[in-house]
Amino acid sequence: MNILSTLNLYKTYGTGETKVEALKQVSISVSKGEFVSVIGPSGSGKSTLLNMVGALDQPTSGMVTIDGREVHKMKEEELSVFRRRNIGFIFQSFNLIPELNVEENIVLPILLDYQKPDQHYIKELLGLLGLTERKHHLPSQLSGGQQQRVAIGRALATKPAIILADEPTGNLDSKNSQDVMNLLKLSVAQYHQTVIMITHNHSYASFADRVFQVNDGMVRELGASRR
């Protein structure tokens, strides 16, 4: 079953001389439980693709379907609610809320959805991420690796349809990067999550079930590279 599919996706910025075609004719599909990575040089259109599939921006033309719902037809207010329930983000620079402690950062998306956090699940997540001891710490009291683990916890909190990770290991050393990759892998396996990860690092790209290469706004799939 396809959790995400795009059909003939186009995104252009500007008009006339300054017109930039950030995405051209992109048609991809991702199944539930898949771990997909996206690679490509800077300016190739990776981030634009991420914005499209993350329901952050509307395409110029084409269709985006997530979990059977046509994202490109949604209104702004609808999109926020959709995003909050179905998409988890992980960023290169962690982007935790500095004023909130570890646990609060993780449950924030749930609170934004006016739900009561499932304490059992949160406890389990904290355990899985190795943050049980530090759940009352502020982000500034954590190392980079720990902060990124909190971000993963936050992305997993609402059990979203897709987790989008934008260079999640970009700011981490190799040991911590390895941990984060393992955690992402684990969440795919344990919670049957779908992960789409942008990365520069080809060896981490090969962690994924499938790899997409973006070049000049065109996306093509590299042969399956299952280990």
């Binding site: 952050l56 609610v81 809320i97 934004l112």
Partner: peptide, 15 residues
């Protein structure tokens, strides 16, 4: 920046 982050993790404009 702060609000952008909140928007990413699912806050609506109204929130």
């Amino acid at each position: 920046r702060q609000f952008g982050l909140l928007r990413c993790i699912g806050a609506s404009k109204k929130q």
